[in-house]
Every structure is written in C-alpha cells, then in structure tokens.
Design a protein around this nucleic acid. Sequence first.
RNA 1: GUGAGUGUAGCUCAGCCGGUUAGAGCACUGGUCUGUGGAACCAGGGGUCGUGGGUUCAAGUCCCAUCACUCACCCCA
Length: 424
Amino acid sequence: MLKSVPGTNDILPQHQEFAFREPVFRHIVETAQKVLASSGAQAIHTPIFEYAEVFQKGVGLTSDIVVKKEMYLFEDRGERLLALRPEPTAAMVRAYNEHGMKVWPQPVRLFTWGPIFRAERHQKGRYKQFHQVDYEAIGSADPLVDAESIALMVKIYRELGLRGLEVKLGSVGDPEDRLRYNAYLRDLFRAHAESLSPDSKARLESNPMRILDSKDPGDQALLRRLEPKPMLEFLGPESRAFHEAVQGYLRALEIPFSVDPSLVRGLDYYVRTAWEVHHARIGAKSALGGGGRYDGLSEMLGGPRVPGVGFGLGIERVAMALEEEGVSIPPDPSPDLYLAPLDEAAKGEVLVLAERLRPRFKVEIGYSVKRAGRALEDALKRGARYVGFLGQAERQKGVVALKHLESGGQREVGWGALEEALGA
RNA sequence: GUGAGUGUAGCUCAGCCGGUUAGAGCACUGGUCUGUGGAACCAGGGGUCGUGGGUUCAAGUCCCAUCACUCACCCCA
C-alpha cells in the first residue's frame, strides 16, 4: 500500500496528533486572517512553485540552502528550473514588482497562507511540507511598519489564547555593518580555531555569526571566555537609530520584548530588524515564527530598490503551542437535524427534504434503513439537535416525526413546515 | 548528512524461556430487535507481526541488514 512521503502529513478532521487536526488548523488560519484583515492588510495567493531563481537569488551562494539543495527543484518539461516555494517572502516581493504595486498606496500590506516545502530531514515541528501564515508590508522604510508587524504577529498569538510567549528583537544591521562584524568575529575566533568544534570551524568562513549560538559545550565555554561583542555594537548610526525607534514604538504598545543581541539570519537579503517569537515548551524547535526587514531583496530579484518587512508563522508549531497550553478549539457545529429513513421508500424522501433545508441548516441523513432505535443512536452519536424519523406512518400524513434530543420532546411536523420548526 | 530510541489490526496495546491456526479493548458492519436502546449480548470484516536475509526441527520472539517513525545534531527562508 502506498503511503505519504516521509515528513509530510495529512490534515484530518480527527488526527492522533493535535497539530494535524483540520479544525485546529482552520482556527489558526481564520484567527490570523481576522487580525491581519482588521489592520487593512489584503489577502493574496501566489503559486506554490516559481522559477527557482526567485528563491535562490536572495539567499547567498554559500548558504546550505543552495549548496546542500534544501529546496525541491524540478524541471518543467526540460525548460527552466522550478522550485516548490520554500518561503513566501520572495514570491510576495516578486508579485509586488510584477503587478506594479508601487502605484498602490504604500506600503502595500499583504498576507497569505499555505504550504511551504523544504527538502530537509524532518523532526518534531519541522516537516518537508508545512504551512505558514505570512504577512508582508512592502514599500516603506519606516520603523513604524516594523513595529506594527511585530504587534500584529503578537496579536495573532494572543487572540488564539497563547500565553508563555517570548518576543526576541534584534538587528542584523545594514550589509556594511554585517561585513565589519563578520570580519571581527573571524579575527577573534581564528586565534582559537583548534578549540572550536568541527561544525564551528566550518562556520568560521561560511557564517561566523552562527558560532555564537552553537550548542557544542566546548564552543559555549570558549564563548564565555572570549565574550565576543554583540552585533548590536557594530550597527552604524542609521541602523542604530532605526533599532531604537522600533523599540520605542513597542514600548508605547506595551508589548513585552527582550533585545537579543545575537539574533541571526541565515539569508543575505535581511537588514536591520529581525525578530522571533518563541514558546517555552514545544521541543528543540521553539520558534513559533519570525520576521525581519529585507530592503535588499527586490533588487536581488532584478527589480527596483523596494524596502519591506514581514513575518511568517508556522501553523503546525502554533498548534503544538496551543496543545501545550491546553487552549480549546471551537468545535465544528453539530448537525441541526439528522433525518432517518425507516423504510426503503423513505430514502429518497429524506434526501429531498435534506436538500430543501440546506444550507440554512446543517442536515445529515441516514444512508441505510434502520430500526428507529438504531437511527436514534446514530443521531445521538453525531450530536444532532433534532432527529427526524420518516417511515410509512409519516409518509401517509406527509409529516416527519421530529424529536428534540435534549428535551426528548417529539411532534409531527409537515414537510413544508420543517424549516420553521428547526428555526425555533 | 550525523547520532540515539522505537516498529504486532484503523487506534491503544498484550503475546512468558523460541513451541499448535497471532490475541484483547476501542472503532466499523450486522444480528438479537417490525418505531424511539447515547444500552447490553452475540457475530463478522480487518494482520504478509515494517521489509529482506540468517540461526533453528520450530521465529512475532534470537542475529544481521534495510526501511519507516520518534527525538536530537547540522541547517533553518
């Protein structure tokens, strides 16, 4: 028997795993939509595959994403190389440029949600196909937009009922700042290269900032001894003022946050503001989502210089956090009516009646003839408000025996009066 | 890519020191039951014991390999 690809998941009405239950999933998406739409952001959808360059241009050539091929790439009938989207941001910026959104009122604020694909080894909270809600504000370089983005993200979590959140704010500076910082780190660590872990030795060239959050005990001991200066001390005057402005707005909003001087981004296109929201108890992958500013991305995609900031939140991760906190999910409404055929001739009649009542009422029918007792059980199992029996006796009178399951009260209702009876 | 742990029915699990035709509960379908049972009882369907090889008179059980899952590392847009 064929199975789903490892690292992918079916989202089911009932699933062993809380995080893969469709009502949970839908609740998260709908809550995010409500919050984002209330700020005036507009929903869009981009294709789930793009020319690979859309995602490759911004990440940097030395990154594992390109080197180790952590993207799902395929050729379109021998034509150009395509990629299943590994992130929404680059696709959103591509769409902004392609459709001339620079003539819309700026910044253009967009949100979307859907599947994201990454060709990595899966583990808890990390899958080859997972799902994100994504928000991007494109076309403004004002720190007010960064602060609003963070506020909206936090609002989504709060609206969902999550507590135990930690907002970490940092700045990766401007590209020049980062060059200076990387040079500083290389100088600092090169003198102690022998005592670095093999992983960190490799990071010395590729991405020295990653050494700062190495989990290797030896590396951590070395870090405590060397006490490297944080990125924030290398910010130029402009990016420093920007960082402080964002903090000022967050304080005005009374959003608790901590400045994380070593917050890192793996991609080249990020500048200035970077943030992550963490949750204490969902395993090694504690980030519920993250965001940042990417003023250089549009140019890397061959477009004009367009600033932007945005965030993505992982739906499965948020679901795990909801489970940890025992947050309840609104259940799907139960049926208003369960129509049970008591003889063969009634099967068609219950179908006709059900169709007449839908969609104003949620109506289920029995698909096989059963004794009234069994039909009652079926109705109870489904949590229906009313059960309607239809057999020979009812047919002769043109009625349904309508029983209110909570009270047990029952009366005969004419076929034309059902709608009114259910509405009461 | 690396490391550790776990694989028996749709789900939760039992299966002793290797020993007959592999079990239970839940769920599903039907019967007891010709119209008011969130019921009880009975029955049924559903398994290549993850897969392949080895040891043995005999393997769900022991050995090897492999695959999958889980957790963690690497990476993380």
